[in-house]
Amino acid sequence: MTTTRPLMKATRIHQYGDADVIRYEDAPLPGPAADEVLVRVAATSFNPTETALRGGLLHGFLPVDLPFTLGWDMAGVVTEVGAAVRNFTIGDRVVGRLDGGAGAEYAVAPARLLAAAPASVPLAHAAALPVAGLTAWQAVFEHGRVGAGQRVLVNGAGGGVGGFVTQLASHAGADVTATASARSAATVRRQGARRVIDYTTTPLPEGLRSPVDLLLNLVPMPPEDAATLPRLVRPGGHIVSIATPIPADPGRSVTSRHMVARNDVAQLKELIALVDGGAVTLDITETRPLEHLAEVHRSSEAGGVRGKVLLVP
């Protein structure tokens, strides 16, 4: 006898293309393997890189099987536990970065990729943390090695990653200068930037008082623009970019590193501790129904997304 699997709503793509390929549709309810849990999703959050995945631009190094359920960030409640899972039980509030699948009413996740959600914020808000927070953590502490007294320039502080980068660098004791538009300036200052340069009226290097020790670049740009950035860094200084690679300047001993963030649950737990301790806040700029994901993709590609946008099933 054939058993019909229950259905849920999910945001899926069946082919690569523009935002019109995103479908909010019925999909089979997944079941957890022995080392997985099933989570009732409270929220996922939008990351601009997902527009590149949807368009097929990441297929070379991040291939996915179609149809593919979008969504990397997930916060929710455990509803089913695989036979080998010992660290979570039904009813636990969890958060984590998945390899897709979070943009649905339910998601399965390896238990090793999840952490207990922060207790100090609404569960849905925790979905803003994994991808952007881990990217920022690794840029600031692993690659940038930010410490007290360093002069740091955060180029692109108004985005989801930028807010975390600014807060973490400030928390580490750095003197932070940030670029942001006028609509983001007040938030960026609250997050710890001592100076904010409005890039819409004062393009770099204008507005920068003196060369910095470290440039953290979060902005995609043409190569010719990227080539101008090393002069913003003092001789012997460093550049870390999560977007367009920035050339080094060997003649002035300026090094440059282009990074791609990885999943790291230990670091996620440290971020959660900072959230619960009040050192890091979550900049939730908008909360929308999951069925509006295609509209969020379009808005992002038009430059209309700031901070973190939550999508709630």
Rank of each mutant, 00 (worst) to 15 (best):
L7K: 14
R12Y: 00
A19F: 00
I22P: 01
I22D: 00
E25Q: 13
V37G: 09
T44S: 11
E50T: 09
L53H: 07
G56T: 12
G56P: 01
L62Y: 03
P63I: 07
L66W: 06
L66P: 09
P67R: 12
T69I: 13
D73C: 06
V78N: 00
V81E: 10
G82H: 03
G91S: 09
R93W: 01
R97Q: 04
G103R: 13
E105A: 07
Y106M: 15
Y106A: 05
R112D: 03
A115Q: 14
A115W: 00
A119Q: 10
A126F: 07
A126W: 00
A127F: 03
P130Y: 02
G149D: 02
G149E: 07
Q150E: 07
V154H: 06
D175P: 08
V176T: 02
T177M: 06
S184I: 01
R189S: 04
G192Q: 10
R194K: 10
R194L: 05
R195T: 05
Y199H: 15
T202N: 06
L208K: 10
L208R: 11
P211R: 12
L214F: 03
M221F: 05
D225F: 06
R234F: 00
G236V: 15
G236K: 14
G237I: 14
I246R: 13
A248M: 14
P250K: 14
P250R: 14
A266M: 12
L271N: 13
L271S: 11
D276K: 15
D283P: 02
R288H: 08
A294I: 13
G303S: 09
G307Q: 11
G307L: 09
L310P: 08
